[in-house]
Design a binder for these strands. Structure first.
Length: 261
DNA sequence: ATGGTAGTAGAACTA
């Protein structure tokens, strides 16, 4: 199979980000690009721009919020949107793409708003549902990538000011506990395998903070997690800050992992 | 300090 490159990007509207996404794809040629917060109805998804570069698009979204999509060079054998438990399906937050030798789980985890908000409880439940969904749709013995905007920074080095930010919905023990339950299904953080202990490696920078990238005022909340068999085959993982430094950026940037199968 | 910005909207909500 050779070198395989996977990327994840919370685009914050795919239509408003084409000027960044399309040139990036053309230059980096990942095998898959998982997107979150596409903020577009399926019939209005700008598929042509991707197809012109030789990518297939599978996507589910709606007008204003959420939305997930996978651009891939190979057409997946199967696509499954949403959960199939008793809760809300959240088809615009989670999708699974089954490839020949790989299962890709693209997630946009609920942010949670505030620890006092019902949305925060929903977020905590969501991690449990994700774990059940992994269990039902994959085996930890397979090549599985679970990636996306997971809305959790797991370690102190994953946020710029851990003392002040502790208690934020993306950086708080209740979330860490639930996130760890997902990891314990059989996933590990592929980025950290390649950058152990390295601080100031962020994938999200708030629009409201001036010069946030230059001042390193970010968060590492986007992740590429993998099962043991695929982690063993990962050869590199990095955060590309260029998309966040471009004109009209998303507030997130692109995380990449490379594998040698 | 309780802002600050951006997207989708075409007012307020989400992040």
């Amino acid at each position: 199979m050779g070198l395989f490159k996977a990327a994840t990007f919370n685009v914050n509207s795919v239509r408003s980000r084409l000027h960044i996404i399309i040139p990036w794809l053309d230059r980096h040629r990942p095998d898959i690009l998982c997107m979150q917060e596409t903020k577009v109805e399926d019939r209005k998804f700008p598929k042509d721009a991707f197809e012109n570069l030789g990518y297939r698009i599978n996507a589910k979204g709606n007008k204003q919020y959420n939305g997930v999509a996978i651009a891939s060079r190979e057409e997946p054998e199967e696509i499954r949107y949403g959960f199939d438990d008793d809760g809300p399906a959240d088809m615009d937050r989670i999708m699974i793409a089954v490839f020949k030798n790989l299962i890709v789980v693209n997630c946009y985890v609920p942010q949670g708003r505030d620890r006092e908000d019902l949305q925060f409880d929903y977020k905590l439940e969501w991690f449990g549902r994700l774990r059940d969904h992994l269990e039902a749709n994959a085996s930890a013995k397979e090549h599985v990538l679970c990636l996306g905007d997971l809305n959790v920074a797991r370690e102190e080095i994953d946020v710029h000011n851990p003392k002040r930010l502790k208690g934020h919905v993306d950086f708080t023990p209740e979330v860490w506990e639930k996130f760890d339950e997902v990891l314990s299904w059989g996933l590990s953080d592929i980025f950290r395998k390649h950058r152990p202990g390295v601080p100031e490696q962020y994938t999200f920078f708030d629009y409201r903070v001036q010069k946030s990238v230059e001042r390193k005022l970010g968060w590492r909340v986007d992740h590429i997690l993998g099962t043991q068999s695929i982690c063993e085959r990962s050869v590199e993982s990095y955060i590309d800050l260029a998309p966040r430094l471009a004109e009209k950026p998303s507030d997130h940037t692109i995380l990449v992992a490379e594998f040698d199968f």
